[in-house]
Design a protein around this nucleic acid. Structure first.
Lengths: 160, 160
DNA sequence: TGTTAGATGTGATGATATAACATATCAAGC
DNA sequence: GCTTGATATGTTATATCATCACATCTAACA
């Protein structure tokens, strides 16, 4: 198990390495990392939080990279489909993947107070759901595991 | 582990017993099961599927029980808060709880082909997420576990 | 060079959800 | 009985999230 999101970290480094991984993975797989798509993943990495599609669109608009909702939704769809970003269903929002390119079934821990979202990899939980589904004859194609509550900082009464 | 949703069942019975459980639980806890709230849980039990708030509202409107969105959303909020219904985040839709009154962390198995939604109780998965969250200092208040894929019937090529 | 597939631009609209404020109901306490 | 407070409902308007439909552009390539 690990989690990305609560601890402090070298953010400039995490942006550049995250972007680099996306660039490389797209090259390997023959995916078109167009300017809009590239910029959206950069925005998600920079902001480092769950962003609504219209938040992303605001950034794009300010940079002349598209002004209508479909522009943002299409880029986000591409990123989610290829594992470079995730949709947080509980928030109707999107976040850069902490481990782009890797196959994984992430779980998200969402703080209701400060809105921080951590991406945890709780393989056992995913496997348990998978196993139970198999037993019922249900084939799992996508899985959503999201926990809402209080993050360590908000738990301990620290300023949000 | 058990699941409610895929197998055939005595639906008239499940409606009446489900409603009865809600009525009794409200009485026990001093909750106001008003006409709108009661009718909404009946609608969810009758339809036996995930319904959008506006689908529910259509029923209410046809019966003169309210015509504006907040009427439906408020009733649904009451039902979800008290464990009589669940929100399926992946679908932005609501479904009657298969085990009203019981404390539980349900997982939902959503068929993308025929839209059937089964409520499974995969205690291990919930506990695993809970345990991992505790280890990180994250307090879980609400958990969403949803798997999307193909139900047994759609899996086997049976008519959807 | 014509064709095609994928990506983007853009206007309109659909779908989901809540804010804000007025009104109603009812039980508790004076 | 009357006031008060808590809870629920009615209603208008609006906020927020998401997609449709169609035109255009570009690169790959037969």
């Amino acid at each position: 198990m690990d989690a990305v999101g609560f601890e402090r970290h070298d953010h400039a480094g995490c942006i550049s390495s995250g972007l680099q991984t996306v660039v490389e993975t797209c090259a390997e797989r023959g995916l078109q990392l167009t300017p809009v798509r590239r910029r959206v993943v950069e925005i998600l990495l920079q902001e480092h939080r769950a962003m609504g599609a219209y938040d992303v669109l605001d950034h794009l608009r300010a940079e002349g990279l598209g002004s209508q909702p479909p522009v943002a939704y299409r880029a986000l769809e591409f990123l989610v489909k290829n594992g470079f970003a995730h949709k947080i269903e509980r928030l109707n929002a999107f976040i850069a993947c902490a481990h782009p390119g890797m196959r994984h079934a992430p779980a998200f821990l969402i703080c209701r107070k400060c809105d921080v979202v951590a991406e945890a990899h709780i393989a056992d939980a995913a496997q348990t759901v998978q196993g139970a589904s198999d037993a019922l004859g249900f084939t799992v194609e996508r899985m959503v595991i999201e926990a809402e509550g209080l993050c360590p900082a908000c738990n301990s009464g620290a300023p949000a």
